[in-house]
Each structure stands twice: as C-alpha cells, then as structure tokens.
C-alpha cells in the first residue's frame, strides 16, 4: 500500500497543507487534468490529482471527488486563502517543480510496483 508520505520525496514535493494526513491517506493512483468537470467525473477515490489550477474551486472538486491530495505541478503554488479552505475541508495540497508528465511517470512507478 502506498501512502501520501511515500510519494513526497520521489516527487520532490513541498507540503503546502494537510501534513497530518500524510501517514494515513492511501494513494490508489493518479489523474492529471485541468478541466474541473472532466476531473470530477473521472478521477477515482484515493487518486492523486495533478493539476496546474490553483483556484478555490479545485478544493471543492477534490473534496467531492475524494482525491487523496491535490498535487500542483510545474512549480505552481496556491495562495493562502485557498490553502485555508483546503485545511478547513481536510484536503492535503502538495506542490512539485516537476512537469506533469514527469510527475505522472514517477507516481505510476511507485503505485504500480
């Protein structure tokens, strides 16, 4: 079983919020997309959602779709008011300098091995 804490180092992640869930949230896979309706209908429970979107709506989608976390790729960050909302809703937000393609490849390796 892969947990969020297991993906932090390989994916060069900075934890922006939700540190307390790293050791308990299971990662079942990954999904990369920046269209919210597409994400909400396709991402599976427990998947890492990789995106370059960082507005507050991303948090709502992650909650409703039950993602294991939001992983902002390509050095995207999130402003403090959105992070506050993510904390309120119990969503972990990570950020990586890696391009989305690279992040997907590394994550797939970790989950599939």
């Amino acid at each position: 079983m892969v947990l969020l804490k297991d993906i932090i180092e390989p994916l060069k992640c900075t934890v922006l919020c939700g540190e307390d869930r790293l050791g308990t949230s299971e990662v079942t896979g990954g999904y990369a997309c920046d269209l919210l309706s597409w994400v909400i209908s396709r991402v599976q429970t427990g998947e890492v959602w990789m995106t370059i979107l960082s507005s507050v709506n991303v948090v709502a989608v992650a909650v409703l779709a039950e993602c294991s976390c939001i992983l902002l790729t390509e050095e995207v960050t999130m402003n403090e008011s959105v992070l506050e909302r993510a904390r309120e809703k119990g969503i972990t937000v990570l950020s990586t300098p890696l391009p989305t393609y690279r992040a997907c490849a590394i994550l797939a390796d970790l989950v599939d091995k």
């Binding site: 269209l35 919210l36 309706s37």
Partner: peptide
C-alpha cells in the same frame, strides 16, 4: 480560466 466550461456539466 478557473477550469470550468468543459461542456460536461449536463452530461455528467
């Protein structure tokens, strides 16, 4: 710009 408008709302 916020990621909406995929034209998936009603189909979803």
């Amino acid at each position: 710009e916020m990621g909406f408008g995929a034209g998936m709302g009603l189909p979803n």
